[in-house]
Design a protein around this nucleic acid. Structure first.
Length: 499
DNA sequence: AAAAAAC
């Protein structure tokens, strides 16, 4: 069996790996590290959770260590592009971890936080820059960043980047890169548009594939519970009353849905926070940090967190809404059962979602066992649920607003409702600082206030499939978080003397 | 259709 020591990685990299307790590479690492170390281009098909980040971070650190040189002013030697801010942060943390015994500078830039600190961080150049496309373009247009000296390009989650409409930004970015460079592409799936992009940008790439598309993670026990829309919240509240569920990720289909679920949980005194694209960056960071450090056991998320968010010891994933894209289901449940742990994925399915369920089962080529309601749970009738929803609409919110009333014309610009502060002028900045001032708890987090006015009447529809009810299997105990959970603060890798 | 992403 291959060990990390077999690759001939630079000693400081090996030392960091050893300290982290990593001995043998995952399949993607086993295939990707050697060619990437040699400077080959790479096209990797791998889902998150396969050890993809280390698969490119380790050889990149090795190559930097082999050819130490000072980055040019406002330039970077390695550019890593990520579709979401959280993933960008995480990639940068990984570089910091694996590179802790090297003296490279590593910074991350993304939107939603003040730009001036990022500009300062780039002024003297950095070795490794992790970025989301929008802020990257912004920095380039401001002449705070140049890509003329990039030696290695990494495109992470390429398929999601394209889904999110980053193709134009991507093309502009790649045009600015030197022709002579190493390019590493990673994608969970390889649809035609990604394949042609790879064709265009990669030179004689090594193809690496480790997981067939839409393979659900092993060790994730899956089940589906049929519940009409009005019963879902009560069902969730009931399930989460079990204190054995220590860290649970709840997925909703919409941003409003996420906020609504959080409010529903809070009504029964279950502390939860939401993470989605309408939240300010500080709110997003607070929510994720509180979830990671255990001060908040329930994180309600849109698909922003479906990919790439690597939180240890997520014991349960609950699909409050089924995703209409089967791949999304795979990514979501892949958030649990990570690092050798077991996990349980429970999906709520209403009449309208039964079609999605069939799609998911077809794509993953497996039937998801149907579970009945948990013991002691009786769902509200559709009528009751509709009445409750109506009452909820009439009930004034604590801030004096009625649910459904908009905060302003552009609710997303001031998601937390902090008067007088735009989202770009608070928080700790996007660069890789020591994390000073990052609140450890979500306690002070502003409550979501974007409400919605959509009536909650149940749209009835003929129930197509009759699914057999099965007894609920034994639930896995939530694994205890290892160490601090949050990990150490992201730090600058202080530039030491160069050899 | 919704998701995220720059200001």
């Amino acid at each position: 069996m291959t060990q990390f020591t077999d690759f001939g990685l630079a000693q400081p990299v090996l030392r960091a790996l050893e300290e982290a307790g990593y001995k043998s590479p995952t399949p993607i690492q086993a295939q990707a590290i050697a060619p990437a170390m040699q400077g080959r281009d790479l096209c990797g098909i791998a889902q998150t959770g396969t050890g993809k980040t280390a698969a490119f971070a380790l050889p990149i650190l090795h190559r930097l260590a082999e050819t130490p040189r000072r980055p040019i002013r406002r330039g970077c030697r390695v550019l890593v592009l990520s579709p979401t801010r959280e993933l960008a942060n995480q990639i940068a943390e990984n570089f910091s971890d694996y590179g802790k015994y090297l003296s490279f500078t590593n910074t991350v830039v993304f939107g939603g936080v003040t730009i001036s600190r990022q500009e300062k961080a780039l002024a003297n150049g950095v070795d490794i820059l992790v970025a989301t496309p929008g802020r990257l373009m912004d920095l380039i247009e401001r002449r705070s960043l140049t890509l003329e000296a990039v030696e290695i390009l990494v495109l992470d989650e390429a398929d999601q980047m394209l889904d999110l409409g980053f193709i134009h930004a991507l093309k502009r970015i790649v045009k600015m890169l030197p022709k002579e460079r190493q390019s590493l592409f990673f994608s969970a799936t390889m649809p035609k548009n990604i394949a042609s992009l790879a064709d265009q940008y990669l030179r004689d790439p090594v193809q690496v594939a480790v997981t067939p598309v839409a393979t659900t993670a092993e060790r994730v026990t899956q089940e589906v519970i049929f519940a009409h829309t009005g019963a879902k919240q009560a069902l969730l509240n009931h399930i989460l009353r079990d204190p054995a569920i220590e860290r649970v990720l709840v997925f909703t289909r919409t941003k409003h849905g996420a906020d609504r679920v959080v409010r529903g949980l809070e009504k029964v005194s279950i502390n939860a926070s939401a993470i989605h694209g309408n939240k300010s960056q500080p709110q997003r960071e607070r929510a994720l940090a509180a979830f990671k450090d255990g001060s908040c056991r329930v994180l309600v998320a849109t698909d922003i967190a479906a990919r790439g968010i690597d939180v240890e010891a997520v014991s349960h994933v609950i699909n409050y809404d089924l995703p209409n894209v089967p791949e999304s289901y795979v990514h979501r449940i892949g958030r649990t059962a990570r690092a050798g742990a077991n996990g349980l994925a429970i999906s709520f399915c209403n009449d309208e979602e039964k079609a999605y369920l069939r799609d998911i089962e077809r794509t993953t080529r497996q039937k998801i066992p149907v579970a009945g309601f948990p013991e002691g749970f009786s769902p509200p009738s559709r009528q009751e649920a509709a009445d409750n929803a109506q009452a909820e609409e009439r009930r004034p919110a604590p801030n004096g607003q009625r649910p459904g009333q908009r905060q302003g014309q552009r609710p997303s610009s001031r998601p937390g409702g902090r008067p007088g502060q735009g989202r770009g002028f608070e928080g700790r900045g996007g660069e890789n600082r020591g994390g000073a001032g990052r609140p450890a708890r979500a306690d002070g987090a502003p409550r979501p206030q974007e409400n919605r006015g959509e009536p909650r009447g149940e749209r009835r529809q003929a129930a197509p499939a009759e699914h057999r009810s099965e007894p609920r299997g034994e639930r896995p105990r939530a694994p205890r978080p290892q160490g601090s959970g949050e990990g150490r603060a992201i730090g600058w890798l202080d530039r030491g003397p160069r050899s």
